[in-house]
Design a protein around this nucleic acid. Structure first.
Lengths: 331, 331
DNA sequence: TGTCACATTGAAAAGGTTTTCATAATATTG
DNA sequence: CAATATTATGAAAACCTTTTCAATGTGACA
């Protein structure tokens, strides 16, 4: 049916071994044979069957990146970083989405167990730490952007506790004492960590923690609006709000705008992620920026190292974040 | 090294053929054997090697979606649709990005030629129509969201000419005669088509086409700002602006806001795509909505049909769009 | 001339599955 | 009871590569 290495061999009047050698640019093959093979490949329109090749080599040179969905545009820089690192070493990166379904996440990891890919990177897993630990024992798994408590699988992330702490400390330094937090009900470790950072910053400044100031919503802008509405309708509303993502912060600002609050003066906002839109909104949003590209690049480099290593590296790597200050904090 | 079907067979005291039958839920195998095999699989932690399986079956049940990058968040609904259709038939969808590099696009298509996937969907190809036509002759390729002139490859899209025409006609119906267009220098067929629609709408209403009113920029919000600045500094500036994407429109509105134009009154805006942010901005953006999920779903259904078909379907399927009217057109 | 090193080559094994084919055992039919 | 289906099974072929191993041919060297 479709043209195989045998057909090429026949046409070029050489053995399949020689064809393989030419195709893989091995030494010890005559100029003559090289030409004959290349001509045959060309004229037959042959492309090697990766399934046969990969089976024989038991290696695919493909890495699977598993993400919840492609909606969060800030994943795109992480993926660019992953691709750059992978491509530099002759690997391809494939992306698959779980739509937040842990079962589907497990299904996708099946591609790893069944050797359809050489490794997998989880960007915000839905599976629990125990499960991932168990899988990490036997397979090439890494995590990126999101760490998991008690998970000894190679991880590249930022220090979300410190990032939250820095963000809130900045608001406090701006003179605020009543600081709202809009976070998510659906707990990812990063949101938990940012919340811890929030509390630590209060403690740093001897401001008592008030659970009324914490709103639990979702990742959508709408829930940012609702969160802001809730906070501003408290008897003693906050004068600054830290949202654990820019999407949420943008929703929150939207509500505040519609109610006539003067953002950056009466009410300050700090987001997280520095997504493209965060400086398109008027007023521009202050936010915490994490090194997306660098995290993606590093996790792939480490993962590929692990593939070759005797003793895989199961460490946690923490890259550094930074504050980006704009209108919403009066900067 | 790793556990194979042979190990399972040995442990279960049956032949590999029987193991395979159990694993693939074939009939004609005794309850006894089923149990023995399942127990062995469990105790050995066996998962079948997909490379062996796929090679033998010459089928992977995987489809590759090739996109420029995951940055454009509106791809996410298309992908959701693709996944739903694929999953319903036991296929997986893998995503790979080209970062707008046609060479990389070709490299990724290599996975199709080399049978690492059963089919590929191009969402906004960077390759030209001739190349894609040639590839489409021999391989299972489809296009989605973006058609290509003179390309006879299965395509699912909307009628971008009509969509542009509808959008601009709406602005005209609102009383505008001086209408700006912000489009992109980098020509995709959809942007060309929307521009054609723009011209047709003018013609529909006997408004002469004025090339001064057309600004060619990029897909970023920044270029939307620049485009708006250019248009509003014309001797006789437009009173309404159609941008071929919401990102651009948001940038444009951002400029207009900063200059104190009253959006929806002095100056109207119409975007394209109905991205999540388009109703988060104040003022809310009027826009053209295309059925992303439905397009993704249909293209996969048709592509899978084609895989089984004698005579593959190379038609163009056009789904319908709609206007979403909000503040920016005074609605 | 004989020996050796080296370059080039092909036959065949290996990688892990599914599937075909033949066989044996059992059940059904007349 | 004989003849025929039916069911359950395993051996081996097939899928397409890469790689090992042995073999051939060539040139260099003594």
């Amino acid at each position: 049916m479709s043209v195989t290495i045998k057909d090429v061999a026949k046409k070029a009047n050489v053995s399949v071994a020689t064809v393989s050698r030419v195709l893989n640019k091995k030494s010890n093959v005559s100029e003559e044979a090289i030409k004959a093979v290349n001509d045959a490949v060309e004229s037959l329109g042959y492309s090697p069957n990766f399934l046969g090749r990969d089976l024989r080599k038991s290696e695919t040179r493909r890495i699977l990146a598993i993400i919840a969905s492609t909606e969060q545009s800030f994943y795109s820089d992480v993926i660019r970083g992953m691709e750059a690192a992978a491509y530099a070493q002759g690997y391809d990166v494939l992306i698959a989405t779980t739509q937040n379904d842990p079962n589907h996440e497990m299904h996708l990891l099946g591609m790893l167990f069944s050797r359809a890919v050489d490794g997998a990177v989880l960007l915000g897993p839905k599976l629990d730490a125990n499960t991932i630990n168990a899988l990490g024992e036997k397979h090439n798994i890494a995590m990126c952007l999101e760490r998991l408590d008690n998970c000894n699988v190679l991880t590249v992330t930022i220090d979300n506790v410190k990032a939250g702490r820095d963000a809130v400390n900045y608001l406090i330094r701006k003179g605020h004492k009543k600081i709202g937090l809009i976070t998510t009900l659906q707990r990812s470790q990063s949101s938990i960590d940012r919340e811890i950072g929030y509390k630590l910053a209060l403690k740093d400044n001897d401001i008592p923690y008030n659970e009324e100031y914490v709103y639990f919503g979702g990742y959508e802008t709408e829930q940012g609006m609702t969160g802001c509405e809730y906070l501003m309708n408290l008897p003693s509303p906050p004068t600054a709000i830290f949202a654990i993502s820019d999407m949420i912060a943008i929703g929150a600002m939207n509500y505040a705008l519609s109610k006539g609050y003067r953002i950056g003066k009466d009410l300050m906002f700090m987001g997280f992620d520095n997504i493209a839109y965060s400086h398109m909104f008027v007023p521009h949003l202050s936010t915490v920026e994490q090194p997306c590209y660098a995290q993606g690049k590093l996790v792939i480099e480490k993962l590929i190292e692990n593939m070759k290593a005797e003793n895989p590296d199961h460490n946690l790597y923490t890259l550094s974040h930074s504050l980006v200050l704009r209108d919403s904090t009066g900067d």
